[in-house]
């Protein structure tokens, strides 16, 4: 232990020099690399390639030529696209608002001591996990104007039969009904997570201050779950914009094009007409629309989180 062995020291000092700093922290790149390759191949490559295709006249099975922004210019005057944009907005707004209200109400109900709470929650969550196509088929049967069970149920309370998805005026609200039925549970789960995070003391203190049930909800619960509500709004918005399976399986965008959203139009252009260049331009615009909306909502969330963190 006393005498320094001469060969060892220079060797180790030499060793010390080349990797000065950061040497001991193991590199985690090898763990990430395979995923990076996969993400590059199936996510990043499609993004880049989509942008490239959108700048070309590109049909499956024929020659391609670079056309610059021509596809985008075509989009701006494409009535069918603008119509689908309107359908998408209508569909999205309704499919965010309805699940948000119902989901919050459900979360408040599930946040109490209920018998069979776990089982009930399991049943409640089932619509969102079930295979969308399977659900869509059954809804189609239920929407049937003559034989469907929905019109029968309406007749029980004296409401005349509806055309549901078979009439242009009622098709989008009917699809929203399915979407709401399907996705209210997700809002419920998110809000329930928020409710679980609220401590008991503010309620007890409010009770002593003389607040009634509504006031407790308005001044304690609502501000404290508002960040969670914003998360629900963001996720719901993204999912509603992207909604495809339900609409495609029930109406294929019909009757006519009455329920054709951007996503369905994109499908038709790309895989019915095989006009992949123009389809890519739609995809790019659609993607930008989603990102833009998400950013706006994220910004709002930051403000919501900030003001509730402020205790206001």
């Amino acid at each position: 232990m006393t005498a320094v062995s001469t060969p060892a020291v220079p060797a180790s000092e030499e060793e010390a020099r080349p990797h000065k700093g950061g040497h001991l922290k193991p590199s985690y790149w090898p763990f990430v690399l395979p995923a990076l390759l996969v993400v590059g191949a199936v996510i990043l490559f499609p993004w880049v390639f989509t942008i490239w295709m959108s700048l070309n006249e590109w049909r499956v099975g024929s020659d391609t030529s670079f056309v610059g922004l021509a596809n985008y210019i075509r989009l701006a005057t494409d009535m069918r696209f603008l119509e689908s944009l309107w359908h998408t907005i209508l569909y999205t707004v309704l499919s965010v608002v309805a699940p948000l209200i119902l989901g919050t109400a459900a979360a408040l109900a599930f946040n109490t001591k209920l018998p069979f709470r776990g089982l009930l929650r399991g049943i409640f969550v089932m619509p969102m996990m079930a295979t969308p196509v399977a659900i869509a088929l059954v809804w189609t049967m239920m929407f049937h104007p003559q034989l469907g069970v929905l019109n029968y149920l309406l007749s029980l309370v004296g409401i005349p039969p509806q055309a549901w998805v078979f009439h242009p005026a009622s098709v989008i609200p009917s699809l929203v009904l399915v979407e709401t039925w399907q996705w209210t549970p997700l809002v419920m789960l998110i809000v329930l997570g928020g409710l679980a995070a609220i401590p008991q003391e503010p309620y007890e203190s409010a009770q002593i201050d003389g607040a009634n049930a509504w006031q407790k909800f308005r001044y304690i619960t609502l501000p404290m779950i508002s960040p969670f509500l914003m998360v629900a709004v963001i996720i719901r918005t993204i999912d509603a914009l992207k909604s495809f399976d339900i609409i495609y399986a029930i109406t294929q965008g019909g009757p006519g094009t009455a329920s054709e959203t951007i996503n369905l139009y994109l499908y038709s252009v790309a895989f019915a007409y095989y006009d992949v260049g123009y389809g890519s331009a739609i995809a790019v615009v659609f993607f930008l629309l989603i990102i833009l909306l998400s950013l706006v909502l994220l910004h709002l969330r930051q403000r919501a989180a900030w003001s509730s963190g402020d205790g206001k």
Partner: peptide, 18 residues
């Protein structure tokens, strides 16, 4: 990591020894 100086265990400098 050691930003400066040196640590020895026994006679061995361990700065860069995992």
């Amino acid at each position: 990591d050691i930003s400066g100086g040196e640590i020895r265990i026994g006679s061995r400098v361990v700065n860069n020894v995992p």
